[in-house]
Simulated assay, not measured.
Amino acid sequence: MASKKHEQVEKKPESVDLGTTGRGHHASEESEPSRTVKPSSRRPLVLVAVILVSIIMVGSILLPSLSAIVSGMQASSSSSSTDAAQTSATAATTNSYMDQLDSRYQSTADSLEAKLESNPNDAAALINLANTYLTWGDMAKNYASTDEENAHVTDLLQKAEGYYDTYLESNDAAAAHVNRALCRYYLGDSAGAISALEKFVAATPDYAPAWANLGMIYQETGDTNKAEDAYNKALEVDPNDENGMKSYVTSQLQSITSSADAATTGDASADAE
């Protein structure tokens, strides 16, 4: 059956008169031998195939790299967006806290100032107003990050200082002297604060908070020897801790001792090397 089929394929059909159908010239095509593709004529097709395969291979090789680049760009963009969001969130949190702080203390200050307007000789309202502005300014100082906020802090502390001055004109209170000196310190005038406290403890040597705050400012400005002396003086004049300074003073003395020991150990190690 296979050979018979082969014979049918090889056998030429008989001529058929197709009349006027327009297919009469097909008879001449039947007499042409079947054509074979020579190697030379196959070459363009092979080149095209090779080029296509090369493109596919190069694409497959570059695909992971391109994917990594795109991923890196997306990660970088995501990281930048995250950093920006975190910065905005931090700023928003700080601003929110400052707003809450201002709202809280402003209402207290307004109430006390109203009392002073109705009675300028109200010493309690005056000292409470000074203390309010000092506490407000001290707390706000920890969160101020812009020029405007820093200017706000300065204004608060200057108001506190002014009210302490007014109060001290008719009331010689030890706490007011110390707090007034702290206003100077928070305003950046460490020398002025030290001078005021040194003058005060010379006249009133038995007030522990004055010695403790003087020690703190000495320590902050790097004079640890004077700081240690002032702290010890605070413990000496208030052995029963009536002013509540003992815990703070003791911890600061321990800090100074630890720092000194660490420095000595470091120097000994350096000498040994």
Rank of each mutant, 00 (worst) to 15 (best):
T221M: 09
V9N: 14
Y231H: 14
A2C: 05
E273C: 11
A262E: 15
S65K: 03
A227T: 02
E32V: 15
R42S: 03
S34R: 10
T265A: 15
R35F: 10
K233W: 11
L63G: 04
P39Q: 02
D241W: 13
Y163C: 03
V53D: 03
A175E: 09
G162M: 07
V50A: 15
I256N: 06
A227H: 03
A89E: 12
A196Q: 09
N213P: 11
C183N: 05
S88M: 06
E117I: 09
K12F: 01
E149Y: 01
Q106H: 05
P44N: 00
I51A: 15
S259M: 14
D206M: 04
G192N: 12
G266Q: 12
D261A: 15
I217D: 00
L235S: 13
D229W: 05
V58K: 01
Y248N: 08
E220R: 06
E7M: 08
V201Y: 04
P205E: 02
D267M: 12
Y167N: 03
R35E: 04
A140E: 05
M1C: 00
A84H: 08
Q100E: 08
N119A: 06
K12C: 03
A263S: 15
L134Y: 00
T224I: 14
K11M: 12
S54W: 11
Y167E: 02
T224N: 13
E198V: 05
L66P: 00
A27F: 04
N131H: 00
M98G: 05
K246Y: 12
N150R: 14
V249H: 10
M139Y: 07
T166M: 08
L253Q: 14
Y218L: 00
A2K: 03
A144K: 13
N142M: 10
K11L: 08
A196R: 09
A176G: 12
A140P: 03
N121W: 03
I69N: 01
G266A: 13
F200A: 07
V249L: 12
L63T: 02
R184A: 15
A123K: 15
S65W: 07
D17G: 00
S259P: 09
A123E: 15
V201S: 06
D223N: 10
P239G: 14
E242M: 07
K12L: 05
A124S: 15
L45T: 12
N243Y: 15
L101R: 00
N171C: 09
Y248R: 12
L134A: 08
L214G: 04
A260N: 12
L134G: 05
I217H: 02
G19N: 01
L187Y: 10
K141R: 10
A272S: 09
K233E: 12
